[in-house]
Design a protein around this nucleic acid. Structure first.
Lengths: 108, 108
DNA sequence: TGCTCATACCTAGAGAACCTAAGCATAGGA
DNA sequence: TCCTATGCTTAGGTTCTCTAGGTATGAGCA
């Protein structure tokens, strides 16, 4: 009954970040934090497995890069990822409207 | 990657329904369906355990009633439930704003 | 009478997703 | 040298929803 629950909503957020161009995991985490105004400060153990899952589903592709002696895995939105993002945006609208309707309603 | 995800957001919805007055489980399910415009058509196996949990947490109280020969358990929002609802409304606003910010942003 | 449907509740176990916590590795600054 | 930031990985725990089964009453219909 305490913390924020992204449960089930992380996928579209990640896809949306990658809509602006390829990024590696660490940068994705940073973008989520920045764009959310510090609301989503997600642990690596949350985001990395999600990236693996999305790639396994064919929504992302990834390549390794070495930058400044350090290795990164850069993710890119696949065609199917774009389609999925559009669908998830619609689902979010539907979902959040429904929640708002119930939370707002003082149908006394 | 398919269905809607209420995960972690059911509690405030139930509390909000009970804000309008005491209701039994079956009626709560119906209210969630009606107020959401059929978006939330939740199975009993989802809602009943949630009600038990919320009561265990002291956010709800319940009494048995017999109506037309059938037994019901009628739930009422406890004082702590009201407080929790207010907090959860604020959290939802914060959460949904953050999601919207990320999903909307084509920060190209 | 027997059947089905709506009402009304309960719960065990499966499945999914996030988080904790640990580990590994490099670069750079104190 | 040590610490911090960067960067990735994964095992296991927790929590929540859903599936699927069970129980029971009342009403309508054949």
């Amino acid at each position: 009954m305490s913390t924020e629950q992204i449960k089930g909503h992380l996928d579209p957020l990640v896809l949306a970040v990658l809509e602006d161009g390829p990024r590696h995991g660490y940068a994705i985490i940073e973008q989520l934090r920045l764009r959310s105004g510090d609301v989503f400060d997600l642990p690596e153990g949350t985001v990395y497995p999600a990236l693996h899952r999305l790639e396994r589903l064919g929504l992302l592709t990834s390549v390794r890069e070495v930058v400044g002696g350090r290795e990164r895995r850069v993710y890119r939105l696949a065609r199917r990822g774009r389609t999925a993002l559009a669908a998830r945006r619609r689902e979010w609208t539907r979902f959040s409207s429904a929640v708002n309707a119930i939370l707002a309603a003082s149908s006394a």
